[in-house]
């Protein structure tokens, strides 16, 4: 922990990123703390107003405060992203762990399967799953998670193989430790770091994928605010209200950037741990 604090002090970019991520997570948890305006019902007289003191992000075509809609939309977007990462992390790590630890034909079969998932472009794979499951934020999140399973499976497997062939695991076996003890006490703890760091790095990509799918209209149903669909709604008013799409999109970009900076810092940390 103290080392983490030291890291933030030596890397100002990581500190700024942390502030952004914490702020956005706070939006997701307690949106009411940051904006008093109603995200769902607007004041028609105030429609399509440019950003100003009353409406930081301006208003939309129904006179709703866009900052409020962005803040209130955070929760759905972040939860969808976390669900997607969860799906990818659990399924991918499970597959990778099995493949790496059991080896042999199980490994071959599972790795061929992940090769195939990698052969289908991520967004198309998600879209195929959405086609089959139907529309909605949760289904979109699952679809995005499925597309990331292969990446997690590969990283987990390579980590498990690295640890499994490590000399200290051989030493543990010679000391009489059983397979289960080796798995629990050596392999999992040592493989977990890089996989969790990958989760942090992938979180940004997953947020982008979730918002892309909801931008295409497969996610939240109106009038529920959600990041990607906010940008999509603004599309029709591009010529008259630049802020409508631009500012919510900027929030997405900043958050993804911040998550990426933190994720890379975390990756570096887990690498030096080896």
């Amino acid at each position: 922990m103290t080392r983490g604090l030291a890291l933030l002090r030596t890397r100002p970019a990581a500190l700024v990123a942390l502030v952004i991520v914490v702020l956005v997570l706070a939006w997701a948890l307690v949106p009411g703390l940051f904006t008093g305006q109603d995200p769902i019902t607007g004041v028609p007289a105030d429609k399509l107003q440019a950003p100003g003191a009353a409406h930081w992000f301006g208003t939309d075509h129904l006179g709703r405060d866009l900052f409020s809609r962005t803040v209130h939309g955070t929760s759905l977007s972040v939860r969808a992203a976390l669900l997607a990462i969860g799906v990818a992390l659990v399924a991918g790590s499970g597959v990778g762990l099995l493949a790496g630890f059991l080896g042999g034909p199980v490994d071959d079969a599972l790795m061929r399967a992940t090769d195939v998932l990698l052969a289908i472009p991520g967004l198309l794979l998600s879209l195929a799953v959405v086609t089959a499951l139907g529309f909605g934020t949760v289904k979109v999140a699952i679809a995005v998670g499925v597309a990331s399973v292969a990446t997690f499976a590969r990283v987990m497997r390579s980590q498990v193989l690295r640890v499994r062939h490590a000399t200290y695991v051989e030493a543990a076996r010679l000391a009489g430790a059983g397979r289960g003890a080796v798995l629990l006490r050596h392999v999992l703890p040592n493989a977990a770091g890089p996989v969790l760091a990958l989760a942090a790095v992938e979180l940004g990509a997953v947020i982008l994928a979730v918002s892309a799918l909801s931008f295409l209209g497969y996610g939240a149903t109106p009038p529920t605010p959600e990041w990607g669909s906010l940008v999509a709604e603004g599309r029709d008013y591009l010529a008259v209200a630049w802020w409508y799409s631009t500012l919510p999109g900027l929030v997405i970009a900043l958050f993804v950037l911040a998550v990426g900076v933190l994720g890379r810092a975390l990756t570096r940390e887990t690498r030096t741990d080896r």
Partner: peptide, 13 residues
């Protein structure tokens, strides 16, 4: 019992 060659890799970090 065995003592490995490389003491840097034979102990779980």
């Amino acid at each position: 019992q065995l003592v490995h060659q490389d003491p840097y890799s034979s102990l779980d970090p």
